[in-house]
Design a protein around this nucleic acid. Structure first.
Length: 504
RNA sequence: CGGGACGUAGCGUAGUCUGGUUAGCGCGCCUGCUUUGGGAGCAGGAGGCCGAGAGUUCGAAUCUCUCCGUCCCGACCA
C-alpha cells in the first residue's frame, strides 16, 4: 500500500467524459435502463435529489409560491399556439397517437384507437399551464399568481448523458402571472437570485448570473436569465434558467384580466426551472479521482459510522458503542437540521467498506474499533481533504461536528470558486481568444480554455462566428457590472463584457 | 439526425484481420481456511446461446447485410 491508488479510472486528466461515468457508477447514483435515454436514479442519487428538492421547495414557499400539479400530456394544438415555442421544442417531442393495444393475427400487439388529436408528453408546461391560468385569472385581484410544479418532463434528446441530458428528467417549473411587466421582470430576478443562492450555499457550486443572448434564449421568451457554473473540464454548465415571457404566452393562451380601471389587459408571465442536471453539476464541480464528493447540506448521509471489529470478543462492544455514537450524532444539528448519520455494519472488510463510502462522497467517515473504546477516541476521515484520516477524542468530534460539516461545505465552495477564478480571463485580442479555446494537441485534446470575458458589440454575427470557429458560445451577459469597452471583433463600442465558454 | 469508434459473465478485456475440438483472463460474486485498524492471501466454485435477427458455410464470437444499444465529435438542449 505504499503507492497512492485512485479509486476511479480513468482520472479526470486521462479521459474526463469517461471519468464522469465511472464516478456516477462508483457512487451508485444512477444507471442506464433498457429505455434509451432514460436513467434509473438509485437511492444515493435520489436521496441527493430529495434534499435538493426539499431545500428549493422551502425557498419557493418562502417567496410566496404554491405547488400544484398539471397534466403530463399536452394537446398538440396547445403547443402550437406560440410560434417560437413550438419551433424550439418540435424536434424533441414524444408524441402519443393511440390509446390502446390490440393483438393482431400473429398475436403481436399493435397500437389501436387512434386519437383525434395527438398528445405531446410535456417537454415543458407553459402552454398547458397557460390554458389553465387563463381560467383562473379574471381580475387584477387574482394577481400575482405564483405557482410551481415538481414534475418529470420528456425531451427526446439525441445524445443522452446521465444527469446532464436524459430523455426524461425530473425538475421543477415555476409559472407566474403578473399585472405589470416590471413585476414579472422582478420575479425572474428574484428566482434567479434564489437559484444562485441555492447553487452556492447548498451545492457549494459557484455560479455566474446573467442574461442569455437572443440566440440562446428560451423559445418564446423575451429575456432568459441563467446561472452558469464551471465544471472541472472548464466547460460551462447552464444550471438554471428564469424566463420573462412578456405577454407571448398570455396572448397565446388568453390569460386576460380586468385592471383597476376596468380595462381588459393581458397578463405578464414568467417561468423558471432547475432539474436533476444540478446533480450532474454537483458531480463535476466537486468529485475527484477517488469518486464523488457530496456537499454536506445535500448529502443523504453526512456521517458514515464504520465499526471496526477485528476480534470476535470485542465485536459486540464495538457495535454497541457505534450505536450509541450514532444516536448522539443524530442529536446534533448542522445547518439547522439533525445530522444525518448511518451506521454501516455490513459484514465487509474494513478497507473495502471505507472505500465504498469514499466513492459515494460521504462528507465524514468515522471508524470505531476496540482501541478507540479504550482510549475514548474515534478515527475520522474528511472526504474534502482527500481522505486524510486522523484520530481524535470522541467528545471533541461530537462537539466540533457542526463546525466540521460547515467547514467542509465552505471548503468545497472555496475550492470551486478558486478554480473558477483561475480559469476565467479577460481577453481583449482576437488571436488570444482563439488560442485560449484551441487545444494544443488536436489528436487527443487536453482540457483547455475556461471562461473568457470579452467585449462584444452585441452583433449576432460574431456570436455565430465564435460558434463556428471555436465551438464556444456566449454563456451570458453578466448582471450588474457593465464597463464599456471595445469589441474584440469589430472595434465598435461594447456596452460591457460577456462570458464565453464551451458548454455542455 | 450527420461523422467516427465500439458491443464477448456484474465490470474490464483476449480471441475477430487469416472461420474449425468444452470461448480464455483479471476484478467482482459464492464457499472454506488463513488474516484482520483496513480496498488482504490461499484453495475451491457459480456465472456467457460472444447485443438481436437474417444470410454465406460441412462448420460463425470471427465473413456479409439489417436492426438495436453505448461512447466520442457535430447540431440541439435543463
Amino acid at each position: 500500500m505504499a503507492k497512492q491508488k485512485n479509486a476511479i479510472s480513468p482520472t479526470r486528466e486521462e479521459d474526463y467524459p469517461e471519468w464522469y461515468q465511472q464516478v456516477v457508477r462508483a457512487a451508485d447514483l444512477a444507471e442506464n435502463t433498457p429505455v434509451r435515454g432514460c436513467m434509473v436514479i438509485k437511492p444515493w442519487g435520489y436521496g441527493i435529489w430529495e434534499n435538493i428538492r426539499d431545500a428549493l421547495d422551502g425557498m419557493f414557499k418562502e417567496t410566496g409560491h404554491k405547488n400544484a400539479y398539471f397534466p403530463l400530456f399536452i394537446p398538440k394544438s396547445f403547443l402550437q399556439r406560440e410560434a417560437e415555442h413550438v419551433d424550439g421544442f418540435a424536434k424533441e417531442c414524444a408524441v402519443v397517437t393511440h390509446s390502446r393495444l390490440e393483438a393482431d393475427k400473429d398475436g403481436i400487439l399493435q397500437p389501436a384507437g387512434e386519437l383525434d388529436e395527438p398528445l405531446i408528453v410535456r417537454p415543458t408546461s407553459e402552454t398547458i399551464i397557460g390554458e389553465l391560468f387563463a381560467r383562473w385569472v379574471q381580475s387584477y385581484r387574482d394577481l400575482p399568481l405564483l405557482i410551481n410544479q415538481w414534475a418529470n418532463v420528456v425531451r427526446w434528446e439525441m445524445r443522452p448523458r446521465l444527469f446532464l441530458r436524459t430523455a426524461e428528467f425530473l425538475w421543477q417549473e415555476g409559472h407566474t402571472v403578473h399585472a405589470t411587466a416590471e413585476e414579472a421582470i422582478e420575479e425572474t430576478h428574484l428566482m434567479l437570485r434564489t437559484y444562485a443562492d441555492f447553487a452556492e450555499n447548498w451545492l457549494a457550486m459557484p455560479v455566474l448570473r446573467g442574461e442569455k443572448t437572443e440566440a440562446e434564449r428560451f423559445p418564446g421568451a423575451e429575456t432568459t436569465l441563467c446561472i452558469e457554473a464551471m465544471m472541472q473540464d472548464r466547460k460551462a454548465l447552464q444550471a438554471g434558467t428564469s424566463h420573462f415571457l412578456g405577454q407571448n404566452f398570455s396572448k397565446a393562451c388568453g390569460i386576460k384580466f380586468q385592471g383597476v380601471q376596468g380595462k381588459e389587459e393581458l397578463g405578464w408571465t414568467t417561468s423558471w426551472g432547475v432539474s436533476t442536471r444540478l446533480i450532474g453539476g454537483m458531480i463535476m464541480t466537486h468529485a475527484d479521482d477517488d469518486g464523488l464528493i457530496v456537499p454536506p447540506r445535500v448529502a443523504p448521509t453526512q456521517v458514515a459510522i464504520l465499526p471496526v471489529t477485528p476480534k470476535e470478543d470485542s465485536r459486540v462492544q464495538v457495535l454497541e458503542a457505534c450505536e450509541a455514537l450514532s444516536k448522539e450524532i443524530n442529536e446534533c444539528t448542522a445547518f439547522d437540521l439533525p445530522v444525518r448519520v448511518e451506521m454501516d455494519d455490513r459484514d465487509l472488510r474494513g478497507g473495502e467498506k471505507y472505500w465504498q463510502w469514499v466513492k459515494k462522497g460521504v462528507p465524514l467517515t468515522v471508524e470505531v474499533g476496540p482501541r478507540d473504546l479504550e482510549n475514548g477516541t474515534v478515527f475520522v476521515g474528511r472526504r474534502d481533504l482527500g481522505g486524510k484520516r486522523e484520530g481524535m477524542k470522541r467528545e471533541e468530534f461530537i462537539s466540533s461536528l457542526e463546525d466540521t460539516l460547515v467547514a467542509i461545505q465552505k471548503n468545497l465552495f472555496t475550492k470551486a470558486q478558486d478554480f473558477q477564478k483561475e480559469n476565467t480571463r479577460e481577453i481583449d485580442k482576437r488571436e488570444e481568444l482563439y488560442e485560449y479555446f484551441t487545444a494544443k494537441n488536436s489528436s487527443k485534446p487536453e482540457i483547455h480554455g475556461g471562461f473568457a470575458l470579452i467585449h462584444w458589440d452585441r452583433n449576432p454575427k460574431w456570436e455565430e462566428q465564435l460558434k463556428n470557429d471555436l465551438k464556444v458560445t456566449i454563456r451570458c451577459i453578466p448582471e450588474g457590472v457593465s464597463v464599456p469597452g471595445t469589441c474584440l471583433f469589430s472595434g465598435q463600442a461594447s456596452p460591457g463584457r460577456v462570458v464565453v465558454a464551451k458548454s455542455y
